[in-house]
């Protein structure tokens, strides 16, 4: 072993195709850990939902269903623009990509604003994370999700600047695609949080 013929030599830098598929696999792995990070909260939700159905029914009506629905629409739309942004970059359209990423960022910010009003309304009604198990779940689940929105926004901001600087092309756009995957995860988790918290009673 190791004494066979040498096929090719390649130095320090990775082959672009390998780098591309490595980065994508790496991000999928990371998304797996994210799902399990939320997993503890989902498990807690399942247990306490089954244990205290009345509490969940009585208290979930305190949440603003309309605001939740609006935020769902905002996030789904931002996922659409993100996906289109990735495709545009793969076609080499830098300007279109930049605009689409910008729209995605604005959606993310909009989501944050709506959430801010929701949280303030709760605090105004003296509802805090220690009010009840249900509101503990509400605040922790949406809070952890909000944290991911912020991280996603930071990633998108970097992608936006780099796109404007012309760092990405039809040939090299791995960061856009991988950053996009992360943003979709934010949407993916909200797709579950919305019905679990706002709708099921």
């Amino acid at each position: 072993m190791g004494d066979g013929s040498v096929e090719h030599s390649h130095g320090h830098h990775m082959d672009p195709a390998v780098e591309y598929s490595s980065s994508k696999l790496g991000m999928w792995l990371f998304l797996g850990t994210e799902i399990l990070l939320f997993g503890g909260l989902f498990a807690a939700y399942a247990i306490f939902r089954a244990k205290y159905p009345e509490m969940f029914f009585e208290q979930h009506v305190e949440l603003n269903k309309k605001m939740g629905a609006v935020n769902t629409c905002i996030l789904i739309f931002s996922s659409l623009t993100m996906a289109m942004g990735v495709s545009a970059m793969q076609r080499g359209k830098q300007k279109v990509t930049a605009i689409l990423i910008l729209i995605t960022i604005l959606c993310g910010l909009g989501f944050g604003v709506v959430k801010y009003f929701e949280y303030s309304a709760k605090f105004h009604h003296h509802i805090y994370p220690d009010t009840s198990i249900f509101f503990s779940l509400y605040f922790l689940m949406t809070g952890l999700h909000m944290l991911h929105v912020f991280i996603g926004l930071a990633i998108l901001a970097v992608l936006f600047v780099l796109t404007l600087k012309g760092k990405f092309t039809a040939k090299y756009n791995t960061p856009v695609e991988v950053g996009g995957l992360y943003w979709h995860l934010v949407d993916l988790i909200w797709i579950y949080l919305f019905p679990l918290l706002y709708l099921i009673g």
Binding site: G32, L36, F48, P129, D130, S136
Partner: peptide
């Protein structure tokens, strides 16, 4: 795949001590 679960568990313990969460 196992570590994130202890991550959230310890986070919950921290919120238990700081925010008064009662899981």
């Amino acid at each position: 795949l196992a570590t994130p679960v202890v991550g959230i568990t310890l986070l919950l313990l921290i919120t238990e001590r700081t925010l008064g969460v009662g899981f």
